[in-house]
Amino acid sequence: MTSAIRVAVAGASGYAGGEVLRLLLAHPRVEIGAVTAGSNAGEPLGALQPHLLPLADRILEATTPETLAGHDVVVLALPHGQSGAVADALGDDTVVIDCGADFRLSDPAAWARFYGGEHAGAWPYGLPELADQRSVLRAARRIAVPGCYPTVSTLTIAPALAAGLIAPDITVVAASGTSGAGRAVKPHLMGSEVMGNASAYAVGGTHRHTPEIVQNLQLVHDGAVAVSFTPLLVPMARGILATVSAPLAAGVTADDAYAAYDKAYADEPFVHLLPPGQWPQTQSVTGANTVHLQVTVDETARRLVAVGVVDNLTKGTAGAAVQCLNLALGLDETLGLTTVGVAP
């Protein structure tokens, strides 16, 4: 019998850590090892993640190198800036998968501008569907999971840019549920503030995910790429709907655009181009490791318009982590992951 893969999850009391555990419970090759937290250490996991019934009696341990040592894989679901020190204390025999932002950006100047502090470096980027990242991730020992907005924004426009159908002048408007901001208590995320309300934030190119989207798209385009990104907060718990548009190249039709996307994603298990005329909706991907897409052409404005949806906690974070775990360990990439959403 093949031995189990022991996986520890640091930051297990948060939304991302909880979603990682939910998915790992369904993984046929995984044995869940240590579950750790910061301020919640010492609490039973079930008090904070009551939906994880098989793990409810587990006591959250402190996030220390000693606790995380000895596992095959460590998944870090920690606040930005905390992953580097933890990873440095783990040997190369451990696969470390970081769900935070610490190792996503390759440009130290971009890190300093959008996050501040010292740049920790860049790890292999965990978006298998982008360029040749899948080959990079196979057998990788350190992996940076993409941000949720960059995942859906990148996959929604990359085929058009790669095929030369558009100018490299991209506009992204993406509406997200409140879980994308994490579990920490914040006044603007209270139910009385969010219900019945939609709002824009980080307007004018200031959102931290902007340089990550640019970095991704530069992998499929030879030259500079401009991205204007406006995020919206809408009253739902999870999910992102991104509308991405750009000026069309001469002569490009809606059929050309659809054909380019169909070709780009024909063999991708977790990216689904909907039939012509059917538009993505967030409830279709809730709990699933999938991105649903549609694309068309605005003939009057001469712009390509593509819409993508993702569950920010699944394919946008935890599902990507498990997908990368599978690739790093030489497993079937789809193991333990579902394409079936929960609706309504």
Rank of each mutant, 00 (worst) to 15 (best):
V271Q: 09
N197A: 13
D102Q: 10
N289F: 07
V322C: 05
P146F: 12
L329E: 13
V86R: 02
V194M: 04
H71D: 00
R238E: 14
A174F: 01
D102L: 06
Y258G: 11
V214S: 05
A184C: 00
G180R: 10
P211A: 10
P168V: 10
L331Q: 15
P124W: 08
N312T: 00
V173R: 14
N197P: 01
L78R: 07
N197E: 11
P128H: 03
L25A: 14
G42Y: 06
T156K: 08
D298S: 04
P344L: 09
E61S: 15
P231M: 10
A62D: 14
H119R: 04
H51L: 12
K186V: 13
A259H: 05
G121T: 08
S179W: 11
D222K: 03
A120R: 13
R138N: 03
L48H: 11
V145K: 01
L304N: 04
H119D: 11
G84L: 09
G121W: 03
V310G: 01
T338P: 10
A259D: 13
T178M: 03
N40Q: 15
A62G: 12
A77R: 05
G33S: 09
L24C: 04
S228G: 03
Y201D: 04
F103H: 15
Q82H: 13
A174R: 03
L105I: 09
P269I: 09
G147A: 03
Y265G: 07
G223H: 08
Q278L: 14
G191I: 09
E333P: 04
R58V: 15
C324I: 12
T2M: 11
G239M: 08
V234R: 13
L155C: 06
E31G: 10
A69C: 06
A101T: 01
V291N: 00
T151S: 13
K263Y: 00
Y125L: 10
P275H: 05
H209G: 00
G316A: 06
I59D: 01
T210I: 10
P54I: 09
G17V: 05
L325R: 05
V227G: 07
C99P: 01
E129F: 06
E66N: 10
W279N: 02
A163V: 06
D92S: 15
L55F: 04
G100F: 02
S179R: 13
G14Y: 09
T286Y: 04
A69W: 00
A110L: 12
V340M: 07
P124I: 08
A162K: 13
Y265H: 08
I240Y: 02
G308P: 01
T230A: 13
Q323G: 01
R22Y: 00
V227W: 12
A343L: 12
A242M: 05
H221Y: 14
T317D: 15
V203Y: 07
F270K: 01
T36F: 11
T67K: 09
H51R: 14
T253K: 07
M236C: 09
A4G: 02
V203L: 14
